[in-house]
Design a protein around this nucleic acid. Structure first.
Lengths: 156, 156
DNA sequence: TATTGTTATACTCTATAACTATA
DNA sequence: TATAGTTATAGAGTATAACAATA
């Protein structure tokens, strides 16, 4: 054993530190922080947050979805969804409506105002993402989404 | 204007909802959640968290880095780093040492135990990522990191 | 005046557990 | 018994503002 081996030259400071840069998780997180900040800037101070945006998207896509089903789609607990739905209802973007045949459930229905707000928000986010990622080609952005979906294939 | 146009058939429920799936931000977040959960499983209940892992990685890579410089590298505020360094010091993975010539700064130095712990953690994380992403080819994983780094080129 | 580390504080996101009203 | 929505609570993670020591 050489002195270098003993002190870990081959897996020492330089290479050991840059292991971080080779990890998918680390690169995902750093990239996510950037895109999320851009998202918030796109929708402004009092605009929809990422969670409310996603929730409203699903409600528009799946009218009369229940809160439990929506929580499942969002990958969060149903207790955590309450505040999000409260917020969207307060803004007048959706309503909790009665479900005939099951008085426990609330069917969520987007209002016209909510649908318009979503379209407007989508346009803003798309424009901001396009500007943020203008240094990437369309092919690269598509490839990125394809690869991210491969990871998402592991979703519960 | 047709009835379909008025009610937004072309940007209506189905396509409007799936806008979400076309956004980089949404796909990034969902993918990140999966990989992060895997990371935590890799390092166990009392193992290093993602932030402590990254911090220790930088301390090993850049011995005697100050807390302010480390916070900058991690992309967080220096106030937020205090608890992370406290934790790593409590575990015996690094020490705050005096900086000759500037008594305000603390130079962070990883201990041998800390270096060994980092190597062990790196091995565990790499193995878990490899298993989690075994359904992707090596080429795909490399391409993904390349594309994520393109986004990270937007880092402050 | 400016910077380093620190504390205090607050806000967001998320989870767990327990409650209520229904089924 | 089980499920839907809700509340209470707690724990990460992060940010801002202010402070003491030092530059």
């Amino acid at each position: 054993m050489t002195a270098d081996d003993r002190h870990g030259a081959e897996t020492g400071p330089e290479s050991a530190g840059s292991v971080l840069e080779t990890l998918i998780g680390y690169n995902l997180k750093r990239a996510y922080v950037i895109v999320q900040a851009d998202f918030r800037e796109a929708l402004g101070q009092d605009g929809l947050g990422p969670r409310a945006f996603s929730a409203l998207s699903f409600v528009v896509q799946f009218p009369e979805i229940t809160q439990s089903a929506l929580a499942r789609k969002l990958g969060i607990e149903r207790s955590g969804l309450v505040a999000i739905v409260d917020d969207l209802e307060r803004r007048g973007f959706l309503r909790r409506t009665a479900v005939p045949g099951d008085r426990r459930s609330h069917a969520l229905v987007a209002t016209h105002v909510g649908q318009a707000a979503l379209r407007s928000a989508q346009d803003a986010v798309r424009a901001h993402e396009a500007a943020l990622l203008a240094h990437m080609t369309e092919q690269e952005r598509e490839m990125l989404i394809t690869l991210l979906r491969k990871i998402r294939a592991r979703e519960g």
